[in-house]
Amino acid sequence: MLGLVILSSFISIILIAFKTIIEPKLSHTIVLSMGIGLNAVILFVAFQAPDVALTQAVIGIGISSVILLMGLKHLGGNYES
């Protein structure tokens, strides 16, 4: 069961990362990057590292996306790259 969890999390994180790169809208990009962090949390729990999982959940999903959203607001709205 552990191997299936790790394999499916890797497939999901790779698909979300590719979608994040090719997505034209920037606000969608930031929300998708939170999905990458969430899959990384699942992988860290599967690797028996709960401290790293908690840190990634708090910092990588919470504060990083807030900082990116603030930067997007100051850089001028929902610019399409």
């Binding site: 990057s33 990116l68 610019y79």
Partner: peptide, 14 residues
Amino acid sequence: TQRHFIKIFISIEI
């Protein structure tokens, strides 16, 4: 390949 600042920061995060 990307050119916007936010995209580049997100790529570094990945």
